[in-house]
Amino acid sequence: MTVPGSFTATGTAGTAQAALSWTASSGAASYKVQRSTSSSGSFADLSGTLTGLTYTDTTAAGGTTYYYRVVATNTAGSTTSNTVSVTPTSAVTVPGSFTVTGTAGTSQASLSWTASSGAASYKVQRSTSGSSGFADLSGSLTALTYTDTTAVGDTTYYYRVVSTNAAGSATSNTVSVTPASPSTGEGTATGLAVQYRPNDTDAANSAAAPQFIITNSGTSAVGMSTLKVRYYFTKDNSTAFNFFCDWAQIGSDNVQAQFVSMTTPTATADTYLELTFKSGAGSIAAGGNSGQIQTRFSKTDWTNFSESNDYSFSTASTSFVNNSKVTLYVNGTLAWGNEPS
């Protein structure tokens, strides 16, 4: 009898394990798998006596590189295979526990949370009941903060955050936040609000397309000609702008616009689009609204905007929702929203 013939081993990485296989060694009576953490180091027996041509190392630690070889044996002696290296992946566990806190603003709620260990992303959920009815509010987030600008003043909301990775998810505690209502200079709530949606959610193309609805939950009609709407953005360069009113329920011809450079610019706003309305626009009845006002603007050279950091721009909802970062004025007095500061 002669010693076993030459043969070849291969290895495949798994999650905290390594799967090994080898070709048959002619004349071999049995096999034994050996392992080392160095390609030239000391190999130690890992398995008992084997007669099959496969073995799975379930004792491997994820992220560690191991070196394996197989020894074929018979009564005449032994033959050792080639050496293969395998680096198993680490086992993924569900994200760890974490805590969220909330702060009320004017028609908005600012949320922040601690990091959830192992989390790949987060999603904010909101409900008007503390125990049920939670719906996704944000898209997938990697930051640890989020501001809900769609909140209605004097309404109590309940928020929670869900952290997610490939293994599953973990849910934070629930916090309640009651945003304040915007007010006029005299501090009396007007019942007016501006709803907004982006007709185009691409933040890096040649046109911005904000659309608005002005709502009146007050007890008196409000003349459109007394109102001004301001949408804040960064102009990115010194190019002038073109304005288009694509459609308005009150009549596109009754919508007027100008672009105003802010005297005190901020990191997210140096210019605003100001909409005013002719007398032909009529009034907004108590409990009514203006209907849609579909606007669009571009640079005269048609270069791209960078809207992702613009104060009033939001992709939180593609339906009309209250946006306190779009301001509304009645006879020049702030009646809705928060100016950038």
Rank of each mutant, 00 (worst) to 15 (best):
N199E: 15
S176Y: 09
Q294G: 09
G187S: 08
A267V: 15
T271M: 07
A286K: 07
T190C: 13
T271S: 03
N304R: 08
T178P: 12
V222T: 11
A285V: 13
A281W: 07
F233D: 01
S261D: 13
S176H: 08
T264M: 14
F241S: 00
F297R: 02
V175D: 02
P198L: 07
T215K: 09
T226Y: 05
T190W: 09
D202W: 11
T201D: 14
I284H: 02
L192H: 10
D236P: 00
I284G: 03
C245G: 04
S206F: 11
A207C: 05
T184E: 12
Q256A: 09
Q249W: 12
P179I: 11
Q258S: 14
N254K: 10
V177Y: 04
V222W: 06
T188Y: 13
D301C: 08
A281K: 05
S252L: 11
L192G: 09
I284K: 00
V222F: 05
V255I: 15
T188A: 14
S238A: 12
Y231P: 01
G187K: 06
G218V: 03
K228L: 05
L275K: 05
M262P: 06
T263C: 01
K299Q: 10
I213K: 12
T234H: 02
F244I: 06
N289P: 08
L227P: 00
S298Y: 02
S298C: 06
W302R: 13
Q249L: 14
F233Y: 14
K235E: 08
K278G: 10
Q256I: 00
I284R: 00
D301V: 10
G251M: 12
T215Q: 06
D202V: 15
T219L: 08
V194R: 00
R230V: 01
R230L: 01
A267D: 15
A193T: 06
P210Y: 02
L275W: 04
F244N: 12
A286P: 03
T303W: 09
Q256L: 13
S238G: 10
N205H: 02
T239M: 11
G288A: 13
Q292E: 15
L192I: 12
C245L: 05
G282I: 07
K228A: 14
G282R: 07
L227S: 01
S217P: 01
D253A: 15
I214V: 15
D200K: 11
P182D: 12
A193N: 04
R296M: 10
T201W: 10
N237E: 07
A193P: 02
G287L: 05
N216C: 05
F277P: 01
A285R: 10
K278F: 00
D236I: 07
T276K: 02
A203L: 12
T268R: 10
Y231M: 01
V260R: 06
A269E: 08
T266E: 13
T268H: 04
W302Y: 13
G185P: 07
G282S: 09
N254P: 03
V229P: 02
R296L: 10
F233G: 00
S279R: 06
F233M: 01
N205W: 04
G280S: 12
A189S: 15
A209P: 00
T276H: 04
Q249C: 11
E186A: 11
T303D: 14
V222G: 00
S252T: 14
F233K: 00
D301F: 09
A204P: 00
I214N: 00
L273H: 02
K299C: 02
E274Q: 15
A221G: 11
R296Y: 02
Y196H: 11
Q211W: 12
L273C: 00
T264D: 12
